[in-house]
Design a protein around this nucleic acid. Structure first.
Length: 531
DNA sequence: CACTAGTGCAA
DNA sequence: TATTGCACTAGTG
């Protein structure tokens, strides 16, 4: 009767569907409470699943099909449907129900197991579980997006896009009047086959010549078109992803945008934001920053932004106990300036702006496991210079290197890397014979310990802050978390008090030998409180 | 609708 | 041959 018949015996299907649909129904009728409950189970399950044998949550509904291990798409194919629209609604619903059912079935067992692993148990009860209600409140509150502000910006951007397109077509000829400048394939054809410009590099999969920003920049001195495409791309990105898309997320009932924060999407323990992603709203580029002007607090309120400065470097200092790094933070020094001083062998006070930029760049990339090749490309400097900078860095901060080696050793012993509060990330690549994969695994392990620990500090900060707001009787509400930054909304007459509490609480999350530093700003829109 | 590739935004 | 994500468009199935 059902299209999934080839996968299971009919009797099994019927029984299973009954349970699945029943569970789905029960869950669906539990509303917000359901989210707490269902999500709680999901979270416990995912802490173990995600960190154990690698079964993606996405595969959960398929997991119980056992040996078959079919994806939805494969089922569609196996049943010879022309396309997705031909799949009976019944089947689609069965899959949706299966997700809920399997989660329900697996949750209890996994939660029991969670309790037997002390570090994960603490992580769950002290951090992840208390965070659930805070995230729900953030999502529920939402954030006001001023659509007219975006529309005005959109008109400006659109005008420039049309002009750019006309310029480009005038330059390359009317035979390209129909070109789609958003198609990498068509741009590739234009640049490398029509204009015969020299290809700079292949794409990631090596299937074509890259037309990305790096390649276009390299071509810019040879021809005017690449530069124009570069500008076109920048504006098109802005318009399609932010200006045009954001208003579509405004909830008609609340008039606000309600993102979803996922606690189980990121392997390091960071949060992820989606539908829309409010963790990647432009912060730097020319028109880009204008987008942030459209994010406003509700009437009578102001925004407070609070960001941990150099949190990952402070985590690195604490975990590595590197004397130079630790002392710098204890003295409250400008860490980028200090690094530059060490790299160039000059007194920190005499570091030039450009030298400091390089110091900043290296501090920033060190936890990514930068290579001389990568650094030389990033800074556009000779390979040998890049190599020397990195060597000098490790010579000046010797315990950082030792710490990195220790992380790698521990990862090999256990098969997984841990954060300070005990989150695990399994790193199978640490046993790789293939050099490139092994090197990548080492970078992942090192970065995970630092990034993950920083993420935990922020989560603890959020929990403590919500509690403090409540205790102080402030109507302050956290709206967004952008990894090392919080965006808070508060009635204007409570702004000063809330700002003070925010800074104090966030800085007191740890009692480490390294101080945490939090910068706060008060403003009337998101741009106002952005660095 | 699901999926991939290419691209680009954030921390 | 630099970490972690998400989303957009084009293009295919």
């Amino acid at each position: 009767m059902y299209a999934i018949k080839p996968i299971m015996e009919d009797a099994t299907i019927k029984k299973w569907l009954h349970n699945a649909k029943f569970d789905a129904l029960v869950l669906a009728h539990m509303g917000i409470t359901m989210r707490g409950l269902d999500f709680d189970s999901m979270l416990a399950a995912s802490l173990l699943i995600q960190n154990g044998p690698r079964i993606g949550l996405k595969s959960l509904s398929i997991y119980l099909f056992d040996e078959q291990m079919l994806t939805f798409q494969e089922v569609v194919k196996a049943n010879k449907y022309k396309d997705f629209t031909q799949v009976p609604l019944e089947l689609a619903l069965n899959y949706a129900a299966a997700d809920a059912h399997q989660t329900f079935k697996i949750a209890h067992k996994l939660q029991q197991k969670l309790e037997t692993i002390p570090t994960l148990r603490t992580l769950y009860h002290d951090i992840e579980h208390p965070l659930i209600d805070i995230l729900i409140a953030m999502e529920y509150e939402g954030i006001h997006v001023d659509a007219p502000v975006l529309a005005t910006l959109g008109k400006k951007v659109n005008k420039e896009l049309i002009e750019l397109r006309e310029q480009i077509i005038t330059l390359v000829g009317e035979q390209f009047a129909d070109i789609n400048l958003s198609s990498p394939k068509q741009v590739e054809q234009l640049l490398f086959y029509e204009l015969k410009l020299p290809p700079q590099k292949k794409t990631a999969k090596g299937l074509s010549y890259s037309t990305d920003a790096e390649a276009l920049s390299a071509l810019a001195p040879l021809h005017v078109v690449p530069g124009l495409i570069l500008r076109y791309r920048e504006l098109f990105k802005l318009k399609s992803t932010y200006i045009d898309a954001l208003p579509g997320y405004i909830n008609p009932r609340t008039g606000r945008v309600h993102t979803t924060f996922s606690q189980t999407a990121v392997a390091t323990g960071r949060l992820a934001s989606s539908d829309p992603n409010l963790q990647n709203i432009p912060a730097a580029s020319g028109y880009g920053i204008e987008i942030r002007k459209a994010f406003k607090p509700k009437p009578g309120n102001v925004f407070i932004s609070a960001d941990y400065s150099q949190i990952e470097l402070r985590v690195l200092a604490f975990l590595s106990k590197d004397k130079q790094l630790v002392d710098a933070f204890l003295r409250g020094d400008d860490i980028h300036r200090q690094t530059a001083g060490k790299l160039f062998g000059v007194d920190p006070d005499r570091v030039t702006h450009q030298q400091r930029q390089i110091g900043k760049r290296i501090n920033f990339s060190i936890l990514y496991g930068l290579t001389p090749y990568g650094l030389s490309k990033d800074l556009k400097i000779p390979f040998a210079d890049a190599k020397k900078y990195i060597e000098t860095y490790f010579a000046q901060y010797p315990q950082v290197k030792g710490w990195m080696e220790l992380v790698v050793e521990q990862t090999k012993e256990r098969g997984y890397v841990t954060t300070f509060w005990g989150r695990r990330r399994y790193i199978p690549g640490i046993y790789e014979a293939n050099r490139a994969l092994y090197e990548e695994a080492k970078r992942v392990a090192i970065n995970t310990r630092a990034q993950g620990t920083a993420a935990e500090i922020m989560k603890l900060g959020m929990i403590a802050l919500e509690k403090a707001f409540k205790k102080a009787g402030l109507e302050a509400q956290i709206l967004l978390q952008i990894h090392d930054e919080l965006l808070i909304s508060v009635p204007e007459n409570q702004a000063q008090a809330a700002e003070k509490i925010t800074k104090e609480i966030l800085e007191e999350v740890t009692d480490w030998s390294i101080p945490l530093a939090v910068t706060t700003r008060v403003g009337k829109d998101w741009k106002d409180v952005t660095k």
